[in-house]
Amino acid sequence: MSIKGVPTDAACPLADLIVAGEHTVASRGLACQQVADLTLFAFAAGESVSEERYPADTVYVCLEGTLAVACAEGQRMVPAGSCLKVCAGMGHAVSGADGCAVKFLQVNA
């Protein structure tokens, strides 16, 4: 798998690699292979993605803010520095908790 867009000359905060403008959702693919997809997301305050369903397991790693993951079993909060797995095939929606801005890494594998 080839990973792109990550500095090799010096370490930097992962959250600095993506920015969302006002009223936008931004994404930046770091790798997209048969084995796994790595994508950075930045949601401006009030933005969300309605129900998603992936054929593989998904891990959300929150970088800034608190990510809210809503599924049939209820809403899970993922604070910065934490991660949460959503099992393959499970429908879920993601947003910043309480409508706040959020940055996160999504790994599908």
Rank of each mutant, 00 (worst) to 15 (best):
A56F: 02
Q33V: 06
Q34L: 09
A56T: 11
S50C: 09
Q34F: 01
G21L: 07
A36Y: 01
L30T: 05
A20Y: 02
A11W: 06
A11V: 12
V35A: 15
A44Y: 01
E47K: 15
F43R: 08
F41Y: 13
P55Q: 04
I18L: 12
Y54S: 14
V19P: 00
D37R: 12
L40Q: 08
Q34E: 14
L14I: 11
D16C: 12
E51S: 12
F41M: 13
V25R: 12
E51K: 12
L38T: 00
Q33P: 00
P13D: 10
D16F: 10
G21P: 02
D57F: 03
L17R: 08
T24I: 08
Q34A: 14
G46S: 06
R53C: 15
T39Q: 06
A11P: 05
V35L: 10
H23Y: 08
R28C: 03
A56I: 01
Q34T: 06
F41N: 03
D57Q: 09
A56N: 08
E22G: 07
L17K: 07
F43M: 13
E47H: 11
V49C: 07
T24R: 12
I18A: 05
R28H: 08
V25I: 13
Q33N: 06
T24W: 04
A10H: 14
F43T: 07
A56V: 10
V19S: 12
L38P: 00
S50R: 14
V49M: 14
S50G: 12
V19Y: 06
V35C: 04
R53I: 12
A10K: 15
H23S: 14
V49A: 14
G29V: 10
S48W: 02
L14A: 11
I18Q: 01
C12N: 03
A11I: 06
P13L: 12
D57G: 07
A56M: 09
V19R: 13
